[in-house]
Write a protein that binds this DNA or RNA. Structure first.
Length: 465
RNA sequence: GGUGCCAUCGCCAAGUGGUAAGGCCGCAGCCUGCAAAGCUGCUAUCCCCGGUUCGAAUCCGGGUGGCACCUCCA
């Protein structure tokens, strides 16, 4: 496999530290609201990586955290007058159900920040002991970036002398303007955890370093994890700070490879809460099947930005529809045959997850399969190959696994389905009697349910339009 | 202001030195009672200007335009 390392800024051969085993850590969501498409993009991108690693025969330990203590959560708690725990458990389960709609596998381990407080305070203690961290008079603890010689080596952010010496007025006791909080002292009524340094809560960057050490660190190896991933906006300062903490606390680099996914843009601008242009995944899921959204998110290479628009989403739906129509044609046939197509598909994905290439291979596979199926004959072998290929597509790309009839009829209630079936029978009768005028009239009626009809030698089928 | 990414057909999008994949849309045809679905065919010289090279969308230099990070952010 080749992957693009966003810290080295080049595509390089992927070699895990342990043979046949990969440790993967991805920054997960802060659970204070529903997930938007951007969260979905990141989850889908790394789910794809997870699947492709598996397809290459690696055993993968995949950790994705849940940030369940944070200023935004506290804010939400105050606004809604709800307990923090209530908010975080609610949005965690919402996140899980949204992601499962997108066929995103659960990670191997999904630790919560609040469950790793001890690991975090241990790390802070190590940093305090080395004077790489310091406590201010109000009880907050900061990381001193000047103590880390390799600071900025991950993001390559340039900081000039002026900037380095510049003090942020609000925190006068900070040694360097770039110093970041490891521990925030709890004010009177705020939520807090007891620690050797007083009651408080951890800084955001700290949890990933602590969790990686707790769950993934291969002690005897050079790097804590093989791959560390997240959204491109996390490269700086989040990942830079994580790396600094780990480097200074336990004297090793946190990750061998860094991978960052691009954004979902709306009208050319990054989708974000603060810009007010985000929309919830759950709303998109009302209109489109989760697999359509997943397919759409995969049309653009994970590192590029994806400019959201419904025209392209529609185009993705049509491409996925075609795969499912092919699946209908071989319905009932199950097989597991190795094919050239599968090799090519994996090859494309092994090249830094080239999904555009992979998807184009699928289009060609669907088209050529249909072409052959259109010629007279039983095509028994071909059908087995098609079935195997679709199963493989589901395995590595995460779509195409549904029952094709259910896929096309999802969102239509039973009563309507029954009505449609009855009308189809009436139309069949009219057709047999060559009463095409009536048949067409009935078809118009059926179409008004928002479905389309197709007459085949096997009978008349309908699909949600 | 500092740092970085990007610019390929109406739309989406691969290709990163050897003569432009694929999809959507559109047009024509086959099939069909008519449709739908499916199939076939047709549609670009790669933002601009220089340079390197036998050869560049691909490398270098200079423009222009867009976006991101530097503050919470997938």
């Amino acid at each position: 496999m080749q992957i693009y390392d966003s810290s080295k800024k080049e595509k390089i051969k992927f070699i895990p530290q342990k043979e046949n085993h990969v440790s993967l850590y991805v920054c997960g969501p802060t659970v204070y609201d529903d997930a938007h498409l951007g969260h979905a993009r990141s989850a889908v991108a790394f789910d794809l990586l997870y699947r492709v690693l598996n397809a290459n025969g690696y055993e993968v330990t995949y950790v994705r955290n849940i940030t369940d203590i944070d200023d935004k959560i506290i804010k939400k708690s105050k606004e809604t007058n709800k307990d923090i725990k209530e908010i975080t458990s609610f949005y965690t389960s919402r996140y899980h159900s949204d992601m499962s709609r997108l066929n995103v596998y659960p990670p191997t381990i999904e630790p919560k920040a609040t469950s790793s407080i001890d690991a975090m305070t241990d790390m802070i203690q190590k940093l305090l002991d080395k004077d790489t961290a310091y406590q201010t008079s109000n009880g907050d603890i900061y990381f001193d970036i000047s103590k880390d010689e390799k600071y900025l080596s991950i993001s390559h952010k340039f900081q000039n002398e002026e900037e380095k010496q510049q003090r942020v007025e609000s925190v006068e006791e900070k040694r360097n303007s770039g110093d970041f909080a490891l521990w925030k002292n709890a004010k009177d009524d705020e939520i807090g955890f007891d620690s050797p340094f007083g009651r408080g809560r951890p800084g955001w960057h700290l949890e990933c370093s602590a969790m990686i050490e707790e769950y993934l660190d291969s002690k005897e190896k050079e790097f804590c994890v093989d791959i560390h991933g997240g959204g491109a906006d996390l490269l700086f300062p989040h990942h830079e700070n994580e790396a600094a903490q780990t480097r200074c606390a336990i004297n090793k680099e946190i990750a061998k490879y860094w991978m960052h996914n691009g954004f979902v843009n709306i009208n050319g601008e990054k989708m974000s809460k603060s810009l007010g242009n985000s929309f919830f995944l759950k709303d998109a899921l009302k209109e489109y099947d989760g697999e359509v959204l997943r397919f759409y998110l995969l049309t653009t290479h994970y590192r590029s930005n994806l400019n959201f628009n419904t025209q392209d989403l529609e185009s993705s739906k049509k491409r996925l529809d075609k795969l499912y129509r092919l699946k209908k044609r071989i319905f009932g046939i199950e097989a597991d045959i190795k094919t050239d197509f599968q090799t090519k598909l994996l090859q494309a994905l092994n090249d830094d997850l080239n999904t555009s290439k992979a998807l184009s291979l699928i289009d060609e596979f669907v088209s050529s399969s249909n072409e052959t199926l259109d010629t007279p004959g039983k095509h028994k072998n071909l059908k087995k190959e098609i079935s195997s290929n679709i199963n493989y597509i589901e395995k590595v790309l995460g779509f195409g696994g549904k029952n094709p009839y259910e896929y096309f009829q999802s969102g239509i209630d039973e009563e309507t389905k029954q009505k449609i079936q009855n009308l189809i029978k009436q139309r069949d009768t009219a057709k047999k009697e060559k009463n095409f005028e009536l048949a067409d009239k009935i078809r118009d009626e059926i179409l008004s349910f928002g479905v389309s009809l197709m007459d085949t030698p096997q009978g008349t089928f309908w699909e949600k339009a």
